[in-house]
Computed example of a mutant assay.
Amino acid sequence: MYQLFFSPGACSLASHITLREAGLPFELKRLKFAEGQQRSPDYLKVNPKGRVPALVTPEGTITETPAILFYIAQIAPDKKLAPLDNPFELARLQAFNSFIASTVHVAHAHGPRGSRWANEPTSLEDMRRKVPETMRDGFRLIEQDLTGDFVMGDRFSIADPYLFTMSSWLKGDAVEIAEFPRVKAHFERMQARDAVREALAAEAAG
């Protein structure tokens, strides 16, 4: 049995969806960010970074979304969630997820998490104003790369829940998803998947 520490609306949704796609047994452990539970002594023993997701496995705890997604793909190879037998295609997938983690997620975080990088109120406000521009920049590149139903073309992979999660943040970042027709189609396609509906319902249940 695996344990996934998550917070509703956070990037942990990608790992949650992927666990369901893989058909793995897991327990959800909710953290209430508004109450600072991610910084509680008990959780810091699980993940000293004080962030989500954290996946507790029989071997130990894994943090960081790209690592968790890749781990799930490897322990459920029959689900074909990553092209594990094709080094080039696997590198392409990892490049996409790395871009999401290092560029798109960071661009978003400059709004609600600007205090990680600056202290002055004017600096924080400038960072918030910049978010729509930088999110658009990232999603323009994603839009260009989407040439099929899924990130990897016609094959669903661990990249798709990650993109779905980032796409769900666009409206809150003052960006209309309709500006990116391929991204919008991908988002709607993902919404129809059982694993996505189940994950969203579980996180909304409280």
Rank of each mutant, 00 (worst) to 15 (best):
A201W: 01
H105P: 00
R189E: 10
A54S: 11
P132C: 05
L44M: 13
T134R: 07
Y43K: 03
L44W: 04
P41H: 06
P25G: 03
N47A: 02
K29E: 07
L44T: 10
L19T: 01
A109N: 14
K49W: 01
G23W: 09
R20N: 09
A199I: 02
M152P: 01
L69N: 03
G60T: 06
D126A: 15
V175F: 02
D149G: 15
I158Y: 02
P41R: 07
V131C: 06
E21Y: 05
P112L: 04
F187W: 08
D78K: 11
V104I: 15
A76L: 07
S40E: 13
N47I: 09
R197F: 00
T18N: 10
S157F: 05
S98N: 13
R113Q: 14
A54N: 10
M166G: 12
F96Y: 13
G50R: 07
Q144W: 00
D154A: 14
F156D: 12
K184C: 08
A14K: 00
A95W: 00
Q3H: 09
E64Q: 15
P112N: 13
E59R: 13
I17D: 04
E188H: 01
G60L: 07
R92N: 13
E35Y: 07
A54H: 07
Q3N: 11
R129K: 15
I177K: 04
W117N: 10
M166Y: 09
P8H: 02
R92H: 10
S15V: 11
D149S: 14
P132G: 05
Q94Y: 10
S168N: 13
R128N: 12
F5H: 14
M127I: 12
V175E: 09
T65D: 07
R140L: 10
M152V: 01
L124R: 05
V131K: 04
K184W: 00
E89Y: 08
